[in-house]
Amino acid sequence: MNALMKKFTHRMKPMFEQLGQWWEKRVGTHLTRLGHRLTHNKVLDVSHTRWRVFNRVNIPITNRLREASVGYLFVLIWIIGYLIFALYPIFYSLYLSFFNVRLDGASINLTFVGMGNYRAAFLEDPFFIEILIDYGISMLLNVPVTIVFALIIAMLINQDVKGKGVWRTIFFLPVIISSGPVIGELMAQGATTLPSLEEFGFVQLVLNNLSEFFANPIQTLFDSILLVLWFAGIQILILLAGLQKINREVYEAAQIDGASPWEAFWKITLPSIMSLVNVVIIYTIVSMSVFSLNPVIIYVRNIMLGPSTPSILTGLGYSATLAWVFFLLMSLIILLFVGVVSLRIRKVS
């Protein structure tokens, strides 16, 4: 395989070289000339420290301005994309949340109801608040478990274990499976529950021996532990990629200075991958929340598409309202977790 690749690249090399020469001779020079024309003329004259417009107005180019403009150039494609593709759907749904929407064939009938939908969501809807509270509690339980678990796995694979490729491939399985239709298939056939976990009877043991106050969270945790495991795939890989960027020499130096592995974890590993931990937190919360089997999502979908909803609440408008309330709650949870983790890390280091 590798030999084949080498042969291939060897063959391709002269072609690319020729292409490069052609580009430099035929296109590159013209482009440079064009660029020079564009930046040195009467309308616009660019030099290192100032821009001169119409031979009259001088704009001094400070370091800050230069940095800002280069930054904007990098982000420009995102801004354009946001304006074209994201702005309209997001704010259209926000707009709809203030309306009573009825679809008659292709046309949409809007009646303005102000905050009516939001009032209905909090005061009149019999299920929504309850579902939201359940959701919040399950997030508070599942997110830390998922992240700690993912971090442990990532660190394990990052050790000198035999057969790294095989392990990495196995732990990539959940990424492939949980993002596609396969997970639904497996759940339907009962392959995502582990028979041995139930055969152990551990959960039953806990239920029998502890008071309800302690036993309930443990039971929910065990019910969802497989889901948590299945949702940790992406996090494991993100953290693994981060861990691999930490220089091994730093650990060696710390060890010589007498740091225990435990201290090294808190003082080297965690601070180095802190920003990735934040990414992972955000990803975990969002992916668990917008997962199509999440009760909130099912509820919102049923209101949006389902036939079995109360007539006053029918429609896109109300489902958009619910989705935005849900969005706000999600943002709050994200802020909470990111805030707590950042504070804790600052305290330790």
Binding site: A68, G71, Y72, I79, Y82, I282, V286, W324
Partner: peptide, 29 residues
Amino acid sequence: YGFARYNFPLKKLFFVLMLMTFIVPPQIT
């Protein structure tokens, strides 16, 4: 890279808007 390495006005706003595109449930948009 642009977000990580450069400072420019409205950067924080753009960042929040970007996160928003991710957090808003796709079912609704």
